Amino acid sequence: MKIGVVAANGRVGRKVVTDAIQAGDEVTAIVRHENQTNAQKVLMKDLFDLTLDDVKKFDVIVDAFGVWEPAQLVKHQTSLAHLTKILAGTNIRLIVVGGAGSLYVDPEKKTQLMDTPDFPDEFKPLASSMAKAFQELKKVDDVRWTYISPAADFQADGPLKGHYQIAGDEFTTDENGVSAISYADYAQALVDEIHNDQYEQQRISVRW
């Protein structure tokens, strides 16, 4: 399978590249600067400059783009809008590395995790921007997208446990009330979904 990973130099992107190669895929790192991954191929181009001609050879595009500076947060929305625009009407899958803040904490789906009292204030602007991007993605019906939210505690340096649980739009925890996943196990879950292709035009969440 031919996979293009947008923002492959990021910490999640690098793990996705490695896991996809181990799964036997041909991976292209789509990066703005010098490639820092072990991808077999490299496309050095800004996400916002990508065209259909750039990506039409891929079976799957993984969107691992992320920004954290307050003035840049809107790019979560504009970048996803750009990718869905160029992929519209094609057979190319779009797998999005999402956020946890927009997961619902009630069965009625009226309250999101970012609206709960214990959600850290410093992460609310990021969560809000990513939630807006996801709300727009849900309106897209001509792209084969899957949005994958991590657990609340998304551990960059967490261990690879080799297992994970998949849930849907609702926030879930383990039997101890913990919602956590490492970048390593999240990346494995994402690559597994690429191959299993079970959740098109759906959001799933992943935790231990």
Rank of each mutant, 00 (worst) to 15 (best):
Q40R: 08
K75T: 04
D63S: 15
D169A: 14
K41A: 06
E175Q: 07
D59R: 15
L113S: 14
F154I: 02
K45D: 07
I148E: 05
V17R: 02
K161R: 14
V140Y: 04
A23D: 04
H82L: 03
D59K: 06
Y199D: 12
R144T: 00
K15E: 05
R11S: 10
Y164C: 11
L43G: 06
N35F: 09
L137Y: 05
A152Y: 07
S128D: 12
D59W: 02
Q202D: 10
E170K: 09
Q72N: 09
D121V: 13
G158N: 06
L190S: 02
G168N: 15
G10H: 00
N35H: 11
A29P: 00
G101Q: 07
F65E: 06
N9R: 08
E122N: 13
D106M: 12
I30K: 05
N38G: 13
Q165V: 11
G99W: 04
H195W: 03
I30W: 09
D54F: 01
L87T: 00
T84C: 10
H195M: 08
Y164D: 01
D142E: 05
A184F: 03
K57M: 12
K57S: 07
F123L: 05
L103D: 10
E193K: 10
R144L: 11
L190R: 02
Q198W: 15
L137Q: 02
F154K: 00
A180F: 00
D19C: 05
V5M: 04
A81S: 13
V60W: 00
M1R: 12
V31D: 01
N38Q: 15
G24C: 12
S205Y: 06
P70A: 07
A8E: 01
Q155I: 06
K138R: 08
A184M: 01
T111Y: 01
Q112Y: 02
H82I: 06
L137P: 00
I30R: 07
I92W: 03
K2Y: 00
W208G: 05
I95Q: 03
E136L: 10
A152Q: 15
S102Y: 09
D106L: 06
V96E: 03
H76E: 08
G168Q: 14
E136R: 15
G168E: 12
A20V: 03
F123R: 14
G10L: 01
K41P: 02
G162A: 08
V62Y: 01
K41R: 08
K56E: 13
A133Q: 11
